[in-house]
């Protein structure tokens, strides 16, 4: 009997410790932040990635877009649910969780065109399997056992390994021009004109297929929101397109227009408006006027905040 009770206590300790660890230590950002935010009953939930809060060194006002929006719309309570590298796949899980909660906040979702590029889409650290599992698990208890279930392959985590990532094809339009391994992160981090030019191509000049998995996520987001009566506003984040055109001429603009049209077509098909800000600003609105980054400076963030305010 003593042995029986020893084992019983042992398993209870493991069970409770795992719940504690997963709740207090390893609970992922998305699940924790979303549940806390929903409890507070915000009017507007602003999703997004680093384009929401990145700022330039020269900014006097370093407020994120959400803060600027609050100033424009003081009557609304706005929660900032942005985090670097977030994307439509994660938003899909978040919207699902909001729909389950029965709450009906207004949701704003920026769509970053770079997030569709193989370079970003297949990056292992951007898969957020854990966050998505926590948000979509049938019960919080199962979510607590995410890690052990994943370690012992009871659930298919479907992570992308680095070796798989490095073998991912890279495209210019519809033509494959190599694999990710051919374009070294470390090399591209140095800002030579050649590297900047390559970065523009890697980030934007793929041909976006309407069957892209993130576009499927977009459709699912809209369907879930529509079923639950949740209002969602989408906008496509600004791109430093003039700089891209300097390197690639008309080809860059045409490819970008084609890709943004693909996104807008889905929104229109689902009877949602498409605020396309991809070509709305010149390089002076960006954190860097030269680099292929969607990060905006003060002027750029204020522009986006004003456009979003007009939508609301």
């Amino acid at each position: 009997m003593k042995i029986f009770w020893s084992w019983t206590v042992f398993f209870i300790i493991i069970f409770l410790s795992q719940i504690a660890i997963s709740h207090f230590i390893t609970e992922p950002w998305g699940a924790r932040t979303l549940s806390e935010t929903l409890d507070k009953g915000y009017d507007v939930l602003y999703f997004g990635d680093s384009t929401v809060d990145a700022s330039a060194d020269t900014d006097t006002d370093k407020a994120p877009i959400t803060e600027m929006l609050r100033r424009l719309k003081p009557e609304l309570s706005i929660a900032d649910l942005s985090r670097s590298s977030n994307h439509l796949g994660l938003y899909e899980a978040m919207v699902g969780q909001i729909a389950k909660s029965g709450k009906k906040p207004v949701i704003i979702i920026p769509i970053n065109m770079r997030s569709f590029s193989p370079w970003y889409d297949k990056r292992p650290e951007f898969q957020f399997e854990k966050e998505i599992f926590y948000l979509t698990a049938p019960s919080p208890l199962i979510a607590c056992f995410y890690k052990p279930l994943a370690v012992f392959r009871a659930i298919n985590v479907n992570a992308v390994t680095f070796s798989e990532f490095y073998q991912t094809p890279v495209y210019r339009g519809k033509k494959q021009i190599g694999i990710v391994a051919d374009f070294n992160d470390t090399v591209l981090a140095t800002t030579t004109p050649e590297n900047i030019k390559t970065s523009f191509m890697l980030g934007y000049m793929f041909d976006l297929d309407a069957k892209h998995r993130k576009l499927d996520s977009l459709r699912n987001i809209i369907d879930q929101a529509d079923r639950s009566g949740i209002k969602i506003y989408f906008y496509i984040t600004p791109i430093n397109h003039e700089q891209g055109e300097k390197f690639y001429g008309k080809e860059f603009k045409e490819q970008m227009e084609k890709n943004t049209d693909t996104v807008c077509a889905i929104l229109k098909e689902k009877k949602h408006s498409c605020l396309n800000l991809a070509f709305s600003v010149d390089p002076s609105y960006f954190q860097s006027p030269v680099l292929p980054s969607e990060h905006l400076n003060e002027k750029g963030r204020m522009f986006v905040a004003e456009e979003v305010a007009k939508m609301l």
Binding site: F10, I14, I21, P148, F152, R153, V157
Partner: peptide, 20 residues
Amino acid sequence: RWIWYVVLVLSIMNLGVTTE
């Protein structure tokens, strides 16, 4: 000894790798 078992089990459950 039992603490050691608990530490090992929790380590496997939380520090193990989830990719194949």
